[in-house]
Computed example of a mutant assay.
Amino acid sequence: MPNTSRRTSKRDLTLVAVLVVAAIGLITYLVVSPPGGDDGAAQQPAGPSGPSASQSEGSAGADESPLSGLARRDEGDPTALGPVDAPVTMVMYSDYRCPFCAKFSRDIEPELIDRYVDSGQLRIEWRDFPIFGEQSEMAARAGRAAAEQGRFWEYNRAIYEDSPERGHPDLTREVLLDYAHEVGMPDMETFTADLDDPSLDEPVREDLRQGSSIGVSSTPTFVINGEPILGAQPLDTFVEVIEGAAGQQ
């Protein structure tokens, strides 16, 4: 038992250290990268998933954060919640095996949906950022497979609801299939085949490229109308930033 305690303590300290490094990285980025500079990848992710031309023009002003153009606002995006024209957008980079992402999903996300998404003030956009090994990558693919059948958020929440307070859940192929059954996946045969479909990895890689380009190195990381929030912060932190952003519209 003492050895287990020491391993748990060491793991917790490691996670805290990762968050601190990420905070320093993002703060440094915001200080040294002027808006409208040469780092186009940090402001406009390449490919069809990036912001439209009109959005890019709107985010190129000299007084705007270089993170303000991250929201894609794709109509019908199954991995997003809220209207495409919501005044406030929250882009969140998450890993299915991240205990802090699970805490946010259980404790904070429902409150934000009730207060802001349902009233049309906030749009939440998911970004896959699998950093905890092969199981994280497989879970990200499974989430995309669920999205193909309109069950993304149900599947997402089923995983996080079962996640431990500390440490990483064991998300094997069998477990991922069990969650699909649990949420009533309409076509289990297709879902199972999709778990072996590498084409579903491309949107995951695009999310990773976008996050890495702005300095994301830990999960969860949030960007609300260009303002970063690191970790599963208290509800009041999100409320303050969201309402502040809404007041600037």
Rank of each mutant, 00 (worst) to 15 (best):
Gly76Tyr: 11
Asp77Trp: 06
Pro78Arg: 10
Leu81Thr: 03
Leu81Pro: 01
Gly82Cys: 08
Pro83Lys: 12
Val84Thr: 13
Asp85Ile: 01
Pro87Ser: 04
Met90Ile: 06
Tyr93Cys: 10
Tyr93Phe: 15
Tyr93Arg: 09
Tyr96Val: 06
Tyr96Leu: 11
Arg97Ile: 03
Cys98Pro: 04
Pro99Cys: 12
Cys101Met: 12
Cys101Phe: 11
Cys101His: 12
Cys101Gly: 13
Cys101Val: 12
Cys101Gln: 12
Phe104Arg: 10
Phe104Met: 15
Ser105Ala: 15
Arg106Trp: 03
Arg106Ile: 04
Ile108Asp: 04
Ile108Cys: 05
Glu109Ile: 10
Pro110Cys: 13
Ile113Asp: 05
Ile113Thr: 13
Ile113Cys: 03
Ile113Val: 14
Asp114Cys: 01
Tyr116Gly: 00
Tyr116Phe: 08
Val117Gln: 09
Ser119Thr: 15
Gln121Met: 07
Arg123Lys: 08
Arg123Thr: 01
Arg123Tyr: 07
Ile124Leu: 15
Glu125Tyr: 05
Arg127Glu: 02
Asp128Phe: 06
Phe129Arg: 05
Pro130Ala: 06
Ile131Tyr: 11
Gly133Gln: 08
Glu134Phe: 05
Glu134Asp: 14
Gln135Asn: 08
Ser136Ala: 09
Met138Thr: 13
Ala139Phe: 09
Arg141Ser: 00
Ala142His: 02
Ala142Thr: 03
Ala142Tyr: 06
Gly143Ala: 11
Arg144Gln: 15
Ala145Arg: 02
Glu148Gly: 13
Gln149His: 04
Gly150Asn: 09
Arg151Pro: 03
Arg151Lys: 15
Glu154Tyr: 00
Glu154Val: 04
Tyr155His: 12
Tyr155Val: 13
Arg157Gln: 13
Arg157Ile: 10
Ile159Asp: 02
Ile159Gln: 08
Asp162Gln: 15
Pro164Met: 10
Pro164Phe: 06
Pro164Arg: 07
Pro164His: 07
Glu165His: 09
Gly167Val: 08
His168Glu: 13
His168Tyr: 08
Pro169Glu: 01
Pro169Gly: 00
Pro169Ala: 01
Asp170Met: 09
Thr172Leu: 04
Thr172Tyr: 04
Arg173Pro: 00
Glu174His: 01
Leu177His: 04
Asp178Phe: 02
Tyr179Lys: 05
His181Glu: 15
Glu182Ser: 12
Val183Asn: 04
Gly184Ala: 06
Met185Val: 00
Met185Lys: 07
Pro186Trp: 11
Asp187Phe: 01
Asp187Ile: 02
Asp187Met: 01
Thr190Asn: 06
Phe191Gly: 00
Phe191Met: 03
Ala193Val: 03
Ala193Trp: 01
Asp194Ile: 06
Leu195Thr: 00
Leu195Ala: 02
Asp196Phe: 06
Pro198Ile: 08
Pro198Glu: 10
Ser199Tyr: 07
Ser199Cys: 05
Ser199Asp: 15
Leu200Gly: 07
Leu200Met: 07
Leu200Lys: 12
Pro203Phe: 08
Val204Ile: 15
Arg205Val: 11
Asp207Leu: 08
Leu208Ala: 11
Leu208Cys: 08
Leu208Glu: 13
Leu208Gly: 09
Arg209Tyr: 11
Arg209Cys: 00
Arg209Gln: 11
Ser213Trp: 00
Ser213Gly: 02
Ser213Cys: 05
Ile214Val: 15
Gly215Arg: 00
Val216Gly: 09
Val216Glu: 09
Val216Arg: 09
Ser217Phe: 06
Pro220Tyr: 05
Thr221Gln: 09
Phe222Tyr: 11
Val223Met: 00
Ile224Leu: 00
